[in-house]
Amino acid sequence: MHRKEVNERSPMRVLEHSIHGGLGRGNIGVVVARPGLGKTAFLVGIAMDDLLRGRKVLHVSLEHSVEKVRDYYDDIYAEIAHKRELEDVWKVRVEMERNRRINCYPPERFSVDKLRESVEFMKEHGEFEPVAIVIDGWDFGAKTTEDIQRIRSIAEELKAEVWMSATTHREAKRNERGVPEPVAHLEGELDVILSMAHDGSSVHVGLHKDHDSDDVTDMQLALDPTTMLLVRKR
């Protein structure tokens, strides 16, 4: 099967459809879940979808090493290549790797300024301008609306989509949309909010906020626990 087809059949399209055409450039999306449900895999899935469409992705991790993140991509790539009988496996992989950068920081060394600095660095030294940025492991607890606004201005300048993960816990307070802390207090600044939760056999992906739309019906999407790929719910 050719790469284009692979992409058209991706459940990622269902996600895009559910959130009315996708996150959109210059916008910020967050996936919130308790530890261990596969937030990293979910973000890698989103990034992989962009990569398979030939788009450049910057993956920022405050949690894993470069090698670990790369393993995530390799595993998910192998899974996709195998499952959908991708042709030109080698070539696509090299192209994909050319379009991907993984930047890792200890959490205390990362900041919005740092992000700006490294985006500028990549532009200058590597002629690399991402159109999707994923930020994994950022602590939302201490973040203010101003932090999010500053990330938005980077996203707008680059015309990039920004996806972030946020960790919540069992007793976290939820707002009226069902968004748990530590994301709830920033809801107004975010364009899309997704959540992940166990529902027996799989990890259900729910939609809490979709730009300005009130229609946040169930997307019927889940994360397959073995392949860590997004799948349609039966």
């Binding site: 993956h59 090493s65 470069v66 993140v69 790369r70 090299v94 790797e97 050319r98 991907r100 950068r101 993984i102 930047n103 890792c104 920081y105 200890p106 060394r109 740092k114 490294s118 030294h125 590597g126």
Partner: peptide, 19 residues
């Protein structure tokens, strides 16, 4: 560092910043 790699048909996988 990035330059030495790029000059050699290298592909940057990622960077890690520490203190």
């Amino acid at each position: 560092f990035v330059k030495t790699v790029m000059q050699r048909r290298g592909l940057i996988v990622g960077t890690t910043e520490e203190e």
